[in-house]
Design a protein around this nucleic acid. Structure first.
Lengths: 242, 242
DNA sequence: CGATATGTTGAAAAAAGTCAATGGCAGTGG
DNA sequence: CCACTGCCATTGACTTTTTTCAACATATCG
């Protein structure tokens, strides 16, 4: 276990009104006047792959918006094995539990180099008091998180599908909409921690997909795979077809 | 698939200010004046076991509070197999997605005879506009649903635990706090749909637990089992944080 | 009282896990 | 610059768990 604290690069305060992910994040419905409150309170940070953004149980002082990269939310068992509960991508909001609970529910770890906005909890609480415009986005993001958890339970958890199919579903689900045909590259250990399978089983499944030309290393990025989206979709749909 | 529409028994309008589950439900923080708005809008309903409370995709006109009994939230696959995503118990709020989405995310089915309150969505929206007192409970309940989904992913999904252990965890998790030593009785099919295992495997696991005197039929209710809570806890020896 | 659903059990097959050896790649230090 | 080292991925052989198929028992309900 790496207990290394990785320093983040501070990129200055965020200009939220011109943010690229504003529409999908919390501040979509704010008006010009509201942004005055945000002034200089939200930090724009970069972290390298592997950085721990916060630990489960830590004091939940901030909410986060992911501007680039991918983050895993992890829970550790007593034996040290990790279970990955969600994978966050561009536009996702996390640490929302800070509004309800004094501690984070999960450990958040960067899967790739990430860029994120760090928002102080008191700021959100104050905005929430002063304007009703934050209410709907908050509920929407919470709903999105729950929908994602439900999808993982329904599609990725064991039962009625072999490892190969579930790996294929995971690759599709992790594929970015902006960059079709690419999906984030995960370690075998991480795939195992998501699907609840042994890393060796994940390796074998990936091997089959590779040999079927449904999966390959991306030529540009070490953090991505190339995938044949229609091919994988056909594969995933087949076994359940009645 | 039973397409039977089961009539509910209407018990009159709810008296929310004196409700037994008020503290755990949405209206814990309302003041006397707020209850004037609720007058005659919330119905108190009974359903028998097996009743479908709403279907996935149906127009989400109501939120519900469960006052007694248990409810499963189900998603059906293309092949008709069901996957159970959550089991709700006394005090739980469900159909919350009506505040964010025009349609329910799941199908809700009574696992036992249930008593529930049916709250019109517009009422909540209006209350939410008029008073800030509903805000925290809404977020809290959403957080609870997400925490439950996370727990299912971490504890009940396959990986690092055999069927017997996961069945034991499920029995413990479904045990009522009010009535210790009892847990709701599920069909083998339902256990399979929760854990992602074959009903036969669930039967074998239950058989082992029964022969170990950790599980038995409850003498009073057909809808419950008796369980040896400390015994099961020792058995699962949980690799999971608190 | 019989019909239908639900639960139990056995034996064989399939899937996945485990253990162990091998290979590749990146970063480090001579 | 190259060898070394550590980490991760791959692959094979074997073991364990779970599924599947089938037969049979039990309960429930008209």
């Amino acid at each position: 276990m790496r207990a290394i604290t990785i320093k983040s690069a501070w990129h200055g305060h965020s200009d939220c009104s011109n943010c690229g992910v504003r529409q999908s994040a919390l501040f979509a419905e704010l008006v010009e006047a509201d942004f005055a409150l945000l002034h200089d309170q939200i930090d724009d940070l970069d972290y390298p792959a592997g950085a721990v953004l916060y630990h489960a149980g830590a004091h939940s002082d901030w909410l986060f918006t992911l501007r680039a990269g991918a983050v895993k939310l992890v829970r550790y068992g007593a034996d040290g094995t990790q279970r990955i509960l969600r994978v966050l991508r561009r536009g996702d909001v996390f640490g929302l539990e800070s509004l309800v609970s004094p501690a984070y529910d999960h450990t958040a770890i960067a899967l790739s180099p990430v860029a994120l906005c760090r928002i102080p909890r008191p700021l959100i609480e104050r905005l929430n008091r002063d304007t009703p415009r934050l209410q709907k986005p908050l509920l929407t993001h919470w709903h999105a998180a729950l929908a994602e958890a439900d999808a993982w339970l329904a599609e990725l958890a064991a039962g009625h599908a072999d490892v190969k199919t579930r790996v294929a579903r995971l690759l599709l689900r992790l594929g970015s909409d902006a960059d079709p045909g690419h999906t984030i590259r995960l370690s075998l250990e991480d795939i195992g921690a998501i699907l609840g399978v042994a890393p060796e089983s994940a390796s074998r499944a990936l091997g089959v997909l590779r040999r079927s030309n449904l999966l390959a290393d991306a030529q540009d990025s070490r953090h991505h795979w190339w995938i044949d989206v229609p091919g994988l979709q056909a594969l995933v749909a087949m076994p359940d077809e009645g």
